[in-house]
Design a binder for these strands. Structure first.
Lengths: 124, 124
DNA sequence: ATACAACTTAGAGTATGCTCTAAGTCAAGA
DNA sequence: TCTTGACTTAGAGCATACTCTAAGTTGTAT
């Protein structure tokens, strides 16, 4: 019977390094990770889901400080639902804005690429 | 008669700080900026266009090191057209991948938001 | 004349987010 | 028994990209 995943196993699953996972725990992003009798970390599927959510927030550009704020609200309990929702909605807004910005800038870069291509034809 | 824009004016136009513009010049991203007789920088419209292009590359996530590589190729002359084109195409590919990633992760965050909203209704 | 604001340079300092190290524990296999 | 490898911790180190500072110069307004 398996008591949980090791930090390496979680690293493999999530694509984060074991160093980073421990670091996230240390700064408070992953509260209450279980330990084996020898002190080694043991992760549940719930933990893995949470870490994947953290990764999702990070990959979309949320700073660690804001992720910590989210965790803090979570630990304060149900009274912080509105605030957590607001935080996520603000983040969603930023992601959408970033996607729009990227699309706009992509066009500009493609224009430059096309300029190079037109030159390429003439100069061989 | 105006001999060119000052660093502050370029900062206002491009949205970069004067510090950053000087820094970019120092590391080699903005070659050959003209000087007034007193040694002050004077920018042409061409310079501004180039700085805006740099900003575009940065905002889409290109590291300074790669931008420097692009500048280096540019200064080597016409023989580097292919390489410059390849560099921009690789970058375009990364931007597209990033947009796709953001769209995917955005969905996940929206799912979480919707989960919060459904709770919100029940708990008042 | 003098104060002020904007500029110059080289270099130091900061923010963020990892990433690695050192010293030690522990369990399993040769 | 001894080695190997994975784990633990606290803390140091590093990469990136700015951002600021200090000391000095210059041009303009009062």
């Amino acid at each position: 019977m398996k008591s949980g995943l090791t930090v390496q196993e979680v690293a493999e699953r999530t694509g984060l390094s074991a160093h980073t996972i421990r670091y996230y725990e240390r700064i408070g992003l992953i509260p209450s990770v279980g330990r084996a009798p020898n002190g080694h970390r043991r992760y549940t599927e719930t933990d893995v889901g949470w870490i994947e959510f953290l990764k999702c927030l990070r990959s979309t550009g949320m700073p660690l400080a804001e992720m910590l704020r989210y965790v803090a609200l979570q630990q304060e309990g149900e009274g912080t639902f509105q605030e957590r929702l607001a935080l996520l909605e603000a983040h969603r807004h930023r992601i959408k804005a970033k996607i729009e910005e990227l699309n706009k800038l992509l066009e500009r870069i493609e224009a430059k690429i096309n300029w190079y291509r037109s030159r390429e034809v003439q100069s061989g």
